[in-house]
Computed example of a mutant assay.
Amino acid sequence: MPLIGWVFVIVALALVVGSLFVLRDSANSMKISDEKMKKIQERKAEVEAEESAEDREQW
């Protein structure tokens, strides 16, 4: 493979690895407000209750 091919391969790998590091670093910086977290938990409880009711109906 010519030299320019190796350069493209190295640059592509560097971009992928760099993007993964940026994604890892920014993963924990997204804070959810207490109000939204409460709504999420309430919705989760509703869905679980509906699923358990459906499971009981099937038996």
Score class of each variant (00 low, 15 high):
Leu20His: 07
Leu20Cys: 12
Phe21Ala: 15
Phe21Arg: 07
Phe21Thr: 11
Val22Ser: 07
Val22Glu: 05
Val22Arg: 10
Leu23Thr: 12
Leu23Arg: 14
Leu23Asn: 01
Leu23Cys: 11
Arg24Pro: 03
Asp25Asn: 14
Asp25Ser: 10
Asp25Phe: 09
Ser26Trp: 13
Ser26Leu: 14
Ser26Asn: 12
Ser26Glu: 11
Ser26Val: 05
Ala27Trp: 14
Ser29Thr: 12
Ser29Gly: 09
Met30Asp: 13
Met30Gly: 14
Met30Ala: 11
Lys31Trp: 02
Lys31Pro: 06
Lys31Ser: 06
Ile32Phe: 11
Ser33Leu: 04
Ser33Ala: 10
Glu35Pro: 09
Glu35Ala: 08
Glu35Asp: 13
Lys36Pro: 07
Lys36His: 01
Lys36Glu: 01
Lys36Arg: 07
Met37Arg: 15
Met37Gly: 12
Met37Phe: 11
Met37Ile: 00
Lys38Asp: 15
Lys38Val: 08
Lys38Asn: 09
Lys39Ser: 13
Lys39Asn: 03
Lys39Thr: 07
Ile40Cys: 08
Ile40Leu: 14
Ile40Val: 11
Ile40Glu: 00
Ile40Gln: 13
Gln41Gly: 04
Gln41Asn: 15
Gln41Lys: 13
Glu42Arg: 01
Glu42Val: 08
Glu42Leu: 11
Arg43Leu: 06
Arg43Gly: 06
Lys44Ile: 11
Lys44Glu: 14
Lys44Leu: 12
Lys44Ala: 13
Ala45Glu: 09
Glu46Phe: 00
Glu46Asn: 13
Glu46Ala: 04
Val47Lys: 06
Val47Arg: 05
Val47Cys: 01
Glu48Gly: 03
Glu48Tyr: 00
Glu48Pro: 14
Glu48His: 06
Glu48Trp: 09
Glu48Asn: 08
Ala49Pro: 04
Ala49Glu: 06
Ala49Ser: 01
Glu51Arg: 01
Glu51Val: 12
Glu51Ser: 08
Glu51Trp: 06
Ser52Cys: 00
Ala53Ile: 00
Glu54Met: 13
Glu54Leu: 15
Asp55His: 01
Asp55Asn: 07
Asp55Ile: 01
Arg56Phe: 04
Arg56Val: 02
Arg56Gln: 11
Arg56Pro: 00
Arg56Gly: 06
Arg56His: 09
Arg56Cys: 03
Glu57Ile: 03
Gln58Asp: 10
Gln58His: 07
Gln58Ser: 02
Gln58Lys: 11
Gln58Ile: 10
Trp59Cys: 01
Trp59Glu: 15
Trp59His: 13
